[in-house]
Amino acid sequence: MHEETVYDALTAAHGDDARWAFGTGFDDPLAGVDTTVPEGVHPADLGAYCLMLGDDALVLSQRLTEWVTRGPELEEEVALANIGLDLLGQARLLLARAASVGALGRSRGRATASIPDEDALAYFRDPDEFRCTGLVAAPGGDFGRTVVRLLVASTWRLALFVRLRDSRDPVLAAVAAKGVAELTYHREHAARWVLRLGDGTPRSHRRAQAGADGVWPLLADAFTATDVERRLTSAGVAVHPGELRQEVEGVLVHVLEQATLAVPPWPEDTAPSGREGQQGPELVALLRTLQSLAREHPAGTW
């Protein structure tokens, strides 16, 4: 069989539509995946950890899609939206995994029966039940700050997912293996922009620097672990975020120096806050937007 057009060839060579919103179907996202909880692991811990990583993806996805209709150029808007879609896909799998081990909190009681578990978690949890970090919950700011934050967040998450591929939890390992290629792309996209803005015009340099100065303090609790993360790291399921520090710092310093930007001072480590459910008004406002439609029209279709 041969392809008649370049488009046919592209489709045939690809064969994996999983990162696209359309055509993937909306049945059980974990169908066919071994969902056995590894021996010696508390399901509640595993669920909490999946919420942490799933919420990071869900919330950053929402921050990126805020650029839709407001991008500097259509091409960049599509790129940011596509990155947001990748993250939404990761969130869906991770929230479904959390649900599969019973981490539904109060959400299940609020969502009507026809709403899938992962949607109940995304749309019917209150802010204090979210486990994302301040790094992703903070507002995107201008384009300079948006790409710096995307660089930092994707560098952190890529370093994590590379290690998480060896997780004893088969679902986490599979999600990580799939996500590594996506996150590599996200980091590359962000790094390209940071280089261009930092080493661009005086104004782009100033705004990229302001973005870095604003984002760096958000790293304060990025490398400190919750008790859940500690226990799961010992069990071979999770990765202690402290393990990521050297790699993340190395990448960020390299990119900023190449971009002729000053590396802001590294913040002092603080205890985990977002991971423990301490969320600020920024997340509350974000969730109000994210959840309003689902709460007003539960299980609505159009």
């Binding site: 805020e66 407001r70 507002p139 995107g140 201008d142 937007t289």
Partner: peptide
């Protein structure tokens, strides 16, 4: 020329940090 994702109309959060 601060055009931001967060600075538009409707349900998008705004605040002192968002131009």
């Amino acid at each position: 020329t601060d055009v931001t994702a967060g600075g538009g109309h409707g349900a998008v959060p705004t605040g002192p940090d968002v131009p």
